[in-house]
């Protein structure tokens, strides 16, 4: 089981600024270990962020996304307010999945 994502969602004017740090190995399947055996590929294939049931971003990733990837984007706050939850979930190529959420906070 993987570690939780770190998610920050801040209300900035009429936009919500979301920053996500995902804990994932993101193995490409091209790397070899000390014995010369290929390390099997293990990377996130799809990421989805939702807020109040509406998808605000979805992404497809390949193995070339770095280890412990970050993701930053903004969406229009229409309807979303402080305290609403932003839910981010991912699925990797082995079928592992994880979903975490964070409440929208005021910009500091």
């Amino acid at each position: 089981m993987s570690d939780p994502m770190r998610i920050r969602a801040q209300l900035m004017g009429d936009k919500v600024d979301v920053r996500v740090l995902v804990a994932h190995e993101m193995e490409t399947g091209l790397r070899k270990d000390a014995d010369g055996k290929i390390v099997p590929a293990n990377y996130i294939q799809s990421v989805t962020a939702t807020c109040n049931g509406k998808t605000v971003l979805s992404a497809q990733w390949g193995p070339a996304v770095s280890k412990n990837p970050t993701l930053a984007f903004k969406f229009a706050a229409a309807g979303a307010k402080i305290g609403d939850k932003v839910i981010v979930s991912w699925v990797d190529n082995k079928g592992d999945k994880r979903s975490d959420e964070a409440a929208i906070t005021a910009a500091s």
């Binding site: 993101m26 509406k54 992404a59 990733w61 996304v65 770095s66 970050t70």
Partner: peptide
Amino acid sequence: PNALSASFMIPEGTEPTVSTRVK
């Protein structure tokens, strides 16, 4: 080895700006 790193779908209401980290 393969050109495409990441692809982001931008629904209406989301700013067309994304950032991430690649290898």
